[in-house]
Every structure is written in C-alpha cells, then in structure tokens.
Amino acid sequence: MPRFSDNEKEVIRQRLLTEGERLFTTFGLKKVSIDEIIAATGIAKGSFYAFYPSKEHLFMDIAVSQQEKMWSEMVAFLQEHSDLSPRELVKQTVMFMLGQFSRYPLIQSIDGDTTDYLFRKLPKEVIEAHTKDDSAELLKLEQYGVHFTCDISVVTKILQMLAVNFFNLSQEEEKIRTEIINIMLDGILKEIVRENK
C-alpha cells in the first residue's frame, strides 16, 4: 500500500472527490470506471484503493458530503420558519430541500436505478449507516415541535422515496412536478406528522 504524507493524502482525497463528482455527474455511476477516475486524478490504481475499496464507496462519500451541506441548510431553514405549524413546517422544509437538489447535481442524478445498483454493490452496513445519518438529521425537526406518528426509520424511508419520485419526475414541467409532489406530501404528512405541537 502506498505511503503518503498527511498533506499528500488530503490533496489526493480532494482530487478524487472533485473528479469523481465531475465524472459521476456527467456519465452516471455505472458508466464510470476506476481507470477513468485514476486517469482524471493522475494517481495510480493502487493509490485509489488506498483511499476507497470501490468506485461505489467514492460515490457514496461524495453524496454524503453533499447531503451534509444540505442538512446544515435545512437547520438554517428551520430556524427561520420555526413559527409554522408542525405539518406546514415539515412540508415547507421538504419542498425547500427538494429545491436545493438543483445545487447538487450528483445527488439529483440519483434515481431508482442508481439506488438499486448501490444496494447491490455496497455492503449493507454502509447503506444502513447512511439511513441512520438521515434519521438523525430528521430527528432535528422534533426540536421545532414536530412529532411523528411512526418510527423515525419509517419517516426516513418515506421521505427518501419521495425524493426518488421527485427525481423521476424531472422530465415533467415544473408546475406539474410541484403539484404532484404537493399532493403526495400533503397525503403523507397527514399520516406521519401530528398537527399539534
């Protein structure tokens, strides 16, 4: 295994993240090879494996990093809109987060096919850790008076599925897509969010 100084590790890691994001966003996860990633970053194949066991792990690292940025944006949104009723707060927060996806093309590119592929290629514990991270972030809604009627793991899966549906509607006019998501969200929130604080 190659040896790198701490500075070299950081430079290589940043190159992998930057070039990986560019390649995955442009061509899609399945069409990008490790050889293309190492050619774009100018590192040896052994060096790639010193950082990631697979391209899927790199993809997940990039997606999680972007999602962490989105979660911090969510907290700022919650602070600004804390006077809304619980259901309206969740609805407006979800709509805000869906709108933020346009700033994160890699996350926006994740569709049902990509999700299925990641489930097949990544170890179960990597997927479960990501879901736990999402659940922990969604629990922050409770600090703003939101109480869910079901377990947070169920809420997390429901909202993840809503996001996938949002991406699948990308070919629709924005007005139609927004109306569909609003209808779905209203129905979902009646079932999973208590109205009273």
Rank of each mutant, 00 (worst) to 15 (best):
G99K: 02
S54V: 06
M161R: 09
D6T: 08
D113F: 13
V64I: 10
T41K: 02
Q143C: 03
E19M: 03
L23R: 02
T149D: 08
T178E: 14
L29S: 07
E80N: 09
P86V: 04
V193A: 07
K124T: 10
F96P: 03
S153C: 12
I12F: 08
L58C: 03
S170A: 11
I183A: 14
V75P: 02
V146C: 08
L17V: 02
D186V: 04
V94W: 00
Q160E: 15
M60I: 07
D133G: 15
I181T: 07
L16Q: 00
K175M: 11
T115D: 11
Q108I: 12
K175I: 14
Q160V: 13
K190V: 10
S85Y: 09
I43A: 00
V11D: 06
T26I: 04
N196A: 14
T114M: 09
E172T: 04
E68V: 05
L185T: 07
L118D: 07
P123G: 12
E125K: 05
N7M: 15
K197N: 12
V94A: 10
E142L: 09
K55Y: 13
S47R: 05
A129Y: 03
T115Q: 08
Q66W: 00
A39I: 04
A50K: 10
M184L: 13
Q92P: 11
T93N: 06
D151P: 09
Q108S: 11
I183R: 10
V11K: 07
A40T: 02
V94M: 05
D151Q: 07
F96I: 02
K31A: 13
F148H: 06
G28K: 03
E68Y: 07
L122F: 13
L169S: 04
P123I: 08
L185F: 03
L169F: 10
S5Q: 08
K124I: 06
M95D: 13
V193G: 01
I158V: 12
R3G: 15
L16S: 02
F119G: 13
I183K: 06
P53H: 03
R120S: 14
